[in-house]
């Protein structure tokens, strides 16, 4: 996409663990070979389970950490070196929202003061203008001016997350990375914040990266969605299309496992086992030990993320074959289970 604001090419990030005096350190590949881009006025959702590397990807894209391999460009130029003056300046254009708003706010500062802090640091306008900007944003996120004088502990969870959002937007960023922004909130409050995020994104034309484990919430806010498994993107596509016709066996299992209100258990794809340790990745396709459709090739050969048409990319040796996925128009939920519930009970017997 030529209009993309942020573009990451084959980025990877690994960490060294357990370095001993003798012997080699074990290396954890948190993110391997991720390529993605997001344009202005677009929300890219990233879903995955814990340990899939979705948060690390978010931090890499924001330039909070540098990738061990690959390159990231923002607005046509490579991300500046971490800690450099240009990097500090670039912070005004990209912001992050975390899961726990209470941890993200300074408990000892009144709301208005901590919202003004980014403007103070980057010396944007005079004091009057900064204060106007703060109250403007408080209103934009649906909070009254009275909130400005309060402290974080005096606000409810939903109000705090609104404050965090307002503070992130105070420097008029172009890119917003949200890492599980609504996971700590109750359902009814979650809906308020989700609506607010979608509204502001559309209104301000933000490029947004929305990281979450919750498929329903991700679909609600995203235009495109990337599914991550063990540090790699295994499938990417248009938000509505992706979960309606998932092509990768892992996406299918995720969609099938997401509980839908009003429906009983049964006929679901039950994945056996748990995600492997990122420090000890399986050979070939990382998903093959849990995949019921796996063939010999999956054990030895890593599938590439290939175009499937219609903006869909999938990394699976079997996804291209028409008999497996494409010819089956039925939605994932009613699909014959790959690995039915009984399979799980075999172990029990």
């Amino acid at each position: 996409m030529s209009a993309s604001l942020l573009h990451a090419r084959n980025i990877a990030r690994s960490y060294e663990l357990n370095r001993h005096i003798w012997g080699n350190a074990s290396v954890v590949h948190a993110v391997s070979d991720v390529t993605l881009s997001v344009g202005r006025n677009e929300t890219l959702g990233i879903v995955g389970e814990s340990g899939s590397g979705k948060s690390t990807t978010g931090r890499l894209l924001l330039g909070l950490e540098s990738p061990t391999r690959g390159s990231i460009s923002f607005d046509g130029r490579p991300l500046p070196v971490i800690g450099s003056p240009e990097w500090r300046k670039s912070r005004t254009r990209m912001q992050m929202i975390y899961q726990d708003p209470l941890a993200a706010l300074d408990r000892r500062l009144p709301i208005a003061k901590q919202m003004r802090e980014p403007l103070d640091i980057h010396q944007a306008g005079n004091l009057q203008e900064r204060e106007t900007r703060v109250s403007e944003l408080l209103r934009a996120v649906g909070l009254s001016d009275a909130v400005a004088r309060r402290y974080p502990h005096e606000l409810s969870g939903g109000q705090r997350q609104r404050v965090v959002l307002a503070r992130a937007l105070v420097t008029r960023p172009d890119l917003l990375v949200c890492d599980e922004p609504v996971s700590a909130l109750d359902v009814s409050i979650q809906a308020q914040v989700v609506n607010l995020l979608s509204d502001l994104q559309a209104e301000l034309g933000l490029a947004m990266i929305f990281i979450s484990h919750d498929l329903r919430v991700v679909r609600q806010v995203s235009h495109r969605i990337a599914v991550m498994y063990l540090g790699r993107i295994v499938e990417e596509g248009e938000a509505d299309d992706l979960f309606a016709r998932p092509a990768h066996p892992y996406t299918r299992a995720l969609v099938s496992a997401a509980p839908v209100p009003g429906t009983k258990l049964g006929g679901r794809i039950m994945l056996r086992g748990e995600p492997p340790n990122p420090a000890n990745q399986p050979s070939g396709c990382a998903f093959h030990p849990r995949c019921s459709a796996a063939v010999a090739r999956c054990k030895s050969e890593m599938p590439a993320l290939a175009e499937l048409g219609g903006g869909r990319k999938v990394s699976c040796h079997l996804a291209g074959s028409p008999s497996e996925n494409q010819a089956d128009p039925s939605p994932a939920r009613t699909r014959v289970p790959l690995n039915p519930v009984e399979a799980a009970s075999e172990d029990v017997a």
Binding site: S188, I189, A191, V194, N195, R216, R219, Q220, A258, V260
Partner: peptide, 18 residues
Amino acid sequence: SLPAIDGPRRRLTAIGGT
């Protein structure tokens, strides 16, 4: 308040207040 996983997307009807 619950987003759907398939079908057409609709705006969530949030419950106001806390």
